[in-house]
Design a protein around this nucleic acid. Structure first.
Length: 607
DNA sequence: GCCGTTTTCGGCCCGACTGTTTTCAGTCG
């Protein structure tokens, strides 16, 4: 059983327990473990099989969850989960996907009205039966009907980072037109460079919040205003993208930026550290808590109702005794400094490794787009690209690259007009002539050779031996057992002419799942034969993802970040690949194509 | 259900906004 399947089982347990109103911390324990296992760098099944190792060494996995993982991995099923599923039909969990409906409301609908599906809920709303429930009203009923379309979508659609980037740029431009805006930053998963983005978070410092909110209400493509208060406003665009806007004063801007950039997991750790030091961090700043006041306020909290003890002092961070004394918050650097921490690059803030790195004083200096000297995977109109060889070269030079490899397809990829050895050699002659004309830039004679269904490569060795750069990739036979695909890739890595594996995991996000290999054997082969693995920057693919990159870094397997561009515009996606590399903590050193071509050649042991 | 320089119990981040109720619970991020 793969880690992703174990993670999915724990996620489902979390959902059902939440629906049942279980202890929220127990729910969180399952969710946390799910995430940790999903992101874990090796199959947990391997740890189960190894008597010398313990699952409880994985953070957030205790005795209980270790036992459940063992049962899942060895039997393929979990009795506890089966029981839960019998108690709560899966269709009921869909109710939780309706915006504004959480576990309490969903449980009430299920229990009081016997609602089991979204269809039944729709009927109940239309029959005005929902508004009769305690805590529900007319507005809730209308909101539920409006929210049903989002819940009915098979999966809540997430947008590629690159697409979200276009909206983020447009939003920035739109809001900066307000005279009162002093600072603007995007926060959330967009700022952390996640592969896909669920919604956009924008943060603004302004002397006139109403002006900014009115302006947001005029944003292109807006379909609905979901809510609007004094400091916060949410809208939804026609395409479903939600945009959250927060407006904060200058003294809170850094604290709010830190807070809304997240991730949630990163912030939980940070807040815990603050607490240990007698500090409190919220979106308004860092506060020193007076012990006497704190004791009084916690007594008060116990004796009075929830939410009443500490009324937040929005826009008045220096007031409110119970809030403590403001000590920082203008910038993120300031906030982290109060805990003796460096200002983590946003891509790192996932509570994976960053706090250990900081504690050891070994926070890596992350690779940047400007570090990349060459792009080693791209196509021309000789196969399925849209631009000519010359156009691709000109674009790469324009972008400041020092070298590129032209890697058109081999003959097996008939759909893309793949090239045989003869055509390839003619292209290479063309490249030789081009190289003779240009200075300070090298065009490499390359090819993306297919790894055939039956194994072996799609071009003869003598042809491949003439190339400067050979990437091998799987396009066919993706339905084979994963072990078989792995074998084909491992065999390709052993071929002395192959330099790298293109999109090695076969990962494609959102649209469909490709074969998604476990890369254990591939890592070994790459190390043995001193080969590279490609981080494909295509936003729909992003293969390797950040987790694989992190493993490569750990094992010392060099990565090349490539665009797989099929047009001149395609070269711009490099940024998406670099973001993933940064999320994995990769430095300039970990990325082979941040070096000059001469050094790469040496790494490959070529003359 | 996890975790521990407060280690086997008692915490576990914390505030905005909405709708319904009239002082607060639920949801969300």
């Amino acid at each position: 059983m793969k880690n992703a399947e174990v993670a999915a089982a724990f996620d489902l347990i979390g959902d059902i327990l939440e629906f049942q109103g279980a202890n929220p911390f127990r729910v969180r324990a399952y969710r946390t473990a799910s995430r940790v296992i999903h992101d874990f760098s090796e199959p947990v099944a391997g740890i189960v099989a190894d008597s010398n190792r313990k699952l409880t060494d994985i953070s957030s996995v205790g005795v209980d969850l270790a036992e459940k993982i063992t049962v899942l991995v060895t039997t393929g099923t979990l009795p506890m989960l089966e029981e839960l599923k019998a108690q709560v039909p899966q269709s009921v969990l869909a109710l939780l996907r309706i915006p504004g409906v959480g576990p309490k409301k969903a449980a009430m609908l299920h229990k009081e009205l016997g609602i089991k599906t979204l269809e039944e809920l729709k009927e109940a709303c239309e029959g005005q039966r929902v508004r009769t429930l305690k805590g529900f009203g007319e507005k809730t009923e209308v909101a539920i009907i409006a929210g049903l379309q989002f819940a009915a979508a098979p999966e809540i659609a997430r947008m590629y980072w690159a697409e979200a980037d276009m909206y983020a740029q447009a939003l920035r431009e739109h809001l900066l037109a307000c005279k009162s805006v002093k600072q603007f930053e995007m926060a959330g998963s967009y700022r952390r460079g996640r592969e896909t983005i669920g919604d956009l978070d924008a943060l603004v410092e302004s002397s006139d919040p109403a002006e900014v909110m009115d302006r947001l209400a005029e944003f292109d493509g807006i379909a609905a205003v979901l809510g609007r208060g004094e400091t916060k406003m949410s809208i939804r665009l026609g395409n479903g993208l939600q945009i959250d806007l927060r407006i904060v004063p200058a003294e809170s801007f850094g604290a709010a930026l830190q807070y809304f950039t997240g991730s949630k997991e990163h912030n939980v750790v940070l807040r815990g550290m603050a607490k240990d030091r007698g500090l409190k961090i919220n979106e308004y700043g860092v506060f020193r808590i007076d012990e006497k006041v704190k004791a009084a306020s916690s007594e008060k909290a116990k004796s009075t109702a929830r939410n009443k003890a500490t009324k937040p002092a929005a826009g008045n961070v220096e007031g409110e005794e119970t809030e403590g004394v403001y000590i920082a918050g203008r910038t993120e650097e300031e906030v982290y400094a109060t805990l003796g921490l460096p200002c983590f690059p946003p891509e790192m803030r996932e509570n994976r490794w960053e706090f250990q790195w900081a504690a050891a004083g070994k926070l890596p200096t992350l690779v940047e787009v400007a570090d990349i000297q060459g792009d080693l995977h791209m196509h021309t109109d000789a196969t399925d690209g849209k631009a000519t060889l010359e156009e691709m070269v000109a674009e790469a030079q324009e972008r400041g690259l020092k070298y590129i490899a032209i890697t058109d397809h081999s003959p097996r990829v008939t759909m893309a007009n793949g090239m045989n050895a003869d055509r390839l050699r003619r292209q290479w002659e063309q490249i030789d002539k081009l190289n003779a004309k240009i200075k300070g830039f090298v065009v490499l004679k390359g090819v993306e050779v297919d790894i055939l269904e039956r194994g072996g490569l799609d071009l003869p060795d003598d042809c491949l031996a003439e190339a400067d750069w050979v990437v091998a990739s799987v396009h066919y036979g993706q339905n084979q057992p994963r072990e078989k695909i792995t074998e084909r890739i491992v065999e390709a890595l052993a071929n002395p002419n192959v330099c790298a594996i293109a999109h090695p995991t076969g990962r494609i996000i959102n649209r469909r799942k490709a074969y998604e290999l476990d890369l254990g054997a591939v890592y070994e082969a790459a190390l043995t034969h001193k080969k590279f693995l490609e981080l494909n920057s295509n936003p729909a693919r992003l293969d390797l993802n950040d987790i694989h990159c992190a493993t490569c870094r750990q094992r010392g397997i060099p990565i090349v970040i490539s665009t797989d561009a099929h047009s001149t515009a395609g070269l711009s996606v490099l940024r998406c690949g670099v973001l993933q590399a940064r999320r994995a903590g990769l430095t300039k050193n970990d990325v082979a194509n941040s070096r000059p071509w001469g050094q790469l050649k040496k790494m490959l042991g070529r003359k």
